[in-house]
Nucleic acid binder design. Sequence first.
DNA 1: TTGACATAATTAGGAAACTAATTATAATGT
DNA 2: ACATTATAATTAGTTTCCTAATTATGTCAA
Lengths: 174, 174
Amino acid sequence: MWLTMLQLSDLPTEEILQRFAQRYPEADVTAIASFLMLLRVATDLSMALDACLSKHDLLQGRWWVLILLMREQDLTSQPSVLAEKLGVTRATMTGLLDGLEQGGLVQRESVPQDRRSVQIKLTAAGQAKLDAVMPDYYSRLRLCMQGLSERQRSDLQSILGVIDRGLSAWDFHQ
Amino acid sequence: MWLTMLQLSDLPTEEILQRFAQRYPEADVTAIASFLMLLRVATDLSMALDACLSKHDLLQGRWWVLILLMREQDLTSQPSVLAEKLGVTRATMTGLLDGLEQGGLVQRESVPQDRRSVQIKLTAAGQAKLDAVMPDYYSRLRLCMQGLSERQRSDLQSILGVIDRGLSAWDFHQ
DNA sequence: TTGACATAATTAGGAAACTAATTATAATGT
DNA sequence: ACATTATAATTAGTTTCCTAATTATGTCAA
């Protein structure tokens, strides 16, 4: 799904927020500000991740698939399972796997027990690609987060947990 | 830019993170967990926003453009300025404006002073669309964030600020 | 056993973003 | 004045996602 977001510098000023709140009494100014800042920073992080991956000829979607495969004991999974975990459609997963297979990073293997199904296996080249990318990614992430104390990290996670649980209320409103 | 993210239920377990940290000593486990949770919740929020907007026949990109126009005193701006603020290319903005103009929500007006340029104006229909959407969006956002104290909201914003400033270190690492 | 339904993966076609090239106009320096 | 360069918007073509339809296979119940 696309995430298009205002630049950090163009988040609404206090004054603009007040103006909107005046027209729309439903507005909760601090909720809006927190929400926008959250989307903004997540977008920046995601773009930074893209930039890092692109230096290794990878795109985020394909990279996530490699990681999911590496998590498995036998480095193997199924397209439908991968799609579910990644939150994309099966059609999209077919495309991601096509790209990865073409690059030799994964391999499709037929499953005798269920001939509708396919096993996806991380190849040696796929593992090597991860071994090249992950240290780079982890180093950058460490630097990027080093300004946060352990206390702040756990605060962040619990705050995010509250928001995520609050999200269930989103849909029930009509 | 696309943001594809693991489902919340499929964020790495403590055990998986430890396994990755063992293979990649660069890994900072709490940094990774916070990062993934942040992307995850932002993705959920963005999808919830999409769902809300789609009930009003709007997509996020176009909706942001309407909001940017409403912020202006004269409800008017230029494609290049809008593109800059939204963080999309001018080509993308042309497409967004095409869609909005077709729906009668904005209007292109020529600028005598500079005939290369175009003024984009929010129409009455565009303002009416916002007046229909914003109360719905603000109500949901209020509900979704109501579990957070004011203290937590400001904590969140300062933590996000630290991360965003930390992001500048991302690119300097090679 | 066979008809109805469910499931796995893919294909086909469409939407919306991107980059790069194009068109038109403005600004600048010699 | 006029050639060069810069700027505003658009068009053309590619990518990757989506939904819906398709193909193939498996499951289950009458």
